[in-house]
Every structure is written in structure tokens, then in C-alpha cells.
Simulated scan of single mutants.
Amino acid sequence: MRTNRRLRWAAIPVAATLTVFLAGCTQTELSGFLPGFEDVNASPVTNHTETVRSLWVGAWVVLLGVGILTWGLTIWAMVAYRRRKGQTGLPPQMRYNMPIEIFYTVVPLILVVGFFAFTARDQQAIETQYEDPDVSITAYGKQWAWDFVYNDSVDGDDVWYAGKQAEPAEDGSVDQDSLPTLVLPVDQTVKIQLESRDVAHSFWVIDFLYKKDMIPGKTNYMSFIPTREGTFAGKCAELCGEYHSLMLFNVKVVSEGEYEDYLESLAAEGNKGDFGSDYNRNQNLPGVTAPAGESHEG
């Protein structure tokens, strides 16, 4: 009884402290300090970011609870069973305790199964691809920049943007306006086909909380709906060579009218027509067809 009373009195200040701490949290802190949630009044960046946020924060809340319980029991055992004055020798030794051993087996199993189930559920939703998207784009990673092809977007033809590698100034800063930019319309379904022109890259838009590898000879896809206008930083998340750190880009989410104007501007610049796999550096991969008049043998 005395031990239970001690535990109850110890739980009161812990619960009070935790309540006060959570009540004083900002939206950024409650969102696990994830990018894209710094502004309390801003909407999620895409239709998937809230799902990722919930999974992330939920997992950390559970892990924090497990940590507090484990630390609490450890400290309690250290205090309750410490050596008293005048005690000698070893304390009574216990060979096993079946209820505790069952608890230590079942609870971690429940946690692992729970984490797997929620992750699989959210991954299934995020990885479901749109079959008939409003916008279809092919993104090519290359050492060390990006090409963006807007498929069948102007008079039934592709228009494209060929990016260049970032060039830092002497102080290490990078001119954001010179970075490759992927333009997307807000509140439209988008499907991006991810390809590599040379080595393995990874397409990562930080505020989207979502990235995917670009592997030579393999096509990956990602589908989402941009739900907030603005400019969002992107980068390659796969070590791809000497200038990997300069393989930067931006995603600019605009209104549908601005998006259509941008596509027309690309066509007016002459960036219209095929800009696909014929421009890949790797021309000896399975499924790659050589341009007319060229041979990849030897």
C-alpha cells in the first residue's frame, strides 16, 4: 500500500508538468518540428503532408510514453531498492517472474504491429497513383541538375525545362532564381514520372515530406495534389557524385492561369517537342532504344 501511495504522489507532478508543457507548445512543436508547418495559419503543402505529420507525431508520442514509463520504473527501482544503512551481502535473487516476462514480450509486440499497421495504411494512401491526373510531368535527375518535361501540355506536345547545376557565390550562398524550377498548379492532381539520365538520384521536396529514388533503368512515380501556393525547396537526397550538394531545385506552386502561361512561355522559347530518354547519358540500359543512326554496341 505504501508503495502504491508513493507511485500516485509521484505521478501527480509528472502529469501536471506534462500538461503545462503541452499547453505551451506552438503549432511547430505540436507538428514535431516538421518543415511546412512553421506557420500556424498556413494550410498543408500537399494532400499528403497532414498524413505524414500525424504518423510522425503519433509515433513520437507513443515512444515518449514508453520512454517515460521505462525511465520512471528504472529510477523508482533505484530508489525503492537501494542499499540501506547496515545492509550487507546481496539482496534476494529472483529467478523469473512470469507476468513481467509476458508483459515485456506482449507490449513490444503490440507496439511493433501497431507501427507497421499505421505505416502500411498511410504508405498505401500516399503511394496510390492517379491514373488520369490533371498534370503529367517527367522529372529527370542528372549530374548535377534537373530536367522537367510537361507531357502533352501545349497543343498535344511536350514542353520542357532544362536545368543547370547550382553555382554558389564566394560566401557559399546560392541564387535561388537561377535554380531549376518545377512549376505546378495548385489544387490539381499531379503525377510525376521519375527518371535518371545517369546515376542514382533522389527527388526530395522538403516541405512535401516526401522523396523518392530515381534509379537508372527503373521508373518510379509519385502522385499528390499541391494545396498551398508558394515556392518550396528541393534537392537530391542520394549521394550522386562530386557536386551532389549543388543538385538543388525549387518547386513553385501557382494558380492554374499562371501555370498555363508558364507552359506557353516554354513553348515560345522553343522548348517544345521530345526531350526524353534520347538525352540520357546511359544508352546501354535494358529497354533504352538508341537514336536513329547510332549504335550502343562496343
Rank of each mutant, 00 (worst) to 15 (best):
N47H: 08
N47A: 02
A23L: 06
L64N: 15
T26M: 06
I225L: 00
A292G: 06
T219C: 03
T74M: 06
C236D: 07
P133F: 10
A237V: 09
S202K: 10
L63P: 13
P35W: 00
Q27P: 09
D171T: 08
E170A: 08
F116R: 15
F33Q: 08
R84L: 11
K212G: 04
A77T: 08
E170G: 15
G234I: 03
W60P: 13
D132Q: 11
D155R: 01
V57Y: 05
M222C: 07
A125R: 15
S202M: 05
Y279P: 00
S43Y: 11
L7D: 14
G163K: 07
D158K: 04
N284W: 10
R228P: 03
A169N: 11
I68T: 10
E269Q: 09
F118I: 09
K218C: 09
G72D: 15
V66D: 07
A139I: 03
W71R: 07
P35A: 03
Q27T: 05
W71M: 08
A200T: 13
K164P: 05
T19G: 07
S196E: 01
T128W: 03
E264K: 10
C240N: 09
I215K: 14
I100N: 12
W60C: 07
F37I: 00
K164V: 07
S265V: 02
F21S: 13
T17H: 01
A59Y: 07
T46F: 03
N4Y: 12
G163Y: 10
F249W: 04
F232V: 09
A200Q: 09
Q27L: 13
A267S: 05
R83E: 13
Q93I: 08
T128V: 08
E170I: 08
E29V: 05
E101D: 04
I206E: 04
R53A: 02
P216Q: 10
Q87T: 12
A200C: 12
G67P: 09
M214T: 02
V199G: 15
M247G: 15
S153Y: 03
D187Q: 14
N250D: 08
A169Q: 08
A23N: 07
A139T: 07
K211W: 11
S136N: 13
A237R: 10
Y279A: 05
T289C: 02
P99W: 14
L248N: 02
S223C: 03
V45L: 01
I225P: 03
R53Y: 14
V253R: 01
V61K: 09
L246C: 03
K191M: 11
D177V: 11
L55M: 07
P44H: 03
S202I: 06
Q27V: 09
L22C: 10
L18K: 00
A80G: 11
Y221E: 12
G67F: 12
R83P: 01
W56T: 06
E50L: 10
L30M: 02
D198I: 05
P91M: 05
Y81H: 12
A169Y: 13
D147P: 03
G65C: 12
K85R: 03
A200R: 15
V61L: 13
V205W: 07
R84S: 04
I225Q: 05
T219Q: 08
N284V: 10
F224M: 09
S202Q: 11
S245M: 15
R84P: 04
E131S: 13
R197A: 08
L73T: 14
N250A: 06
R53F: 13
T49A: 04
Y262P: 00
T26P: 05
M98L: 13
L64D: 15
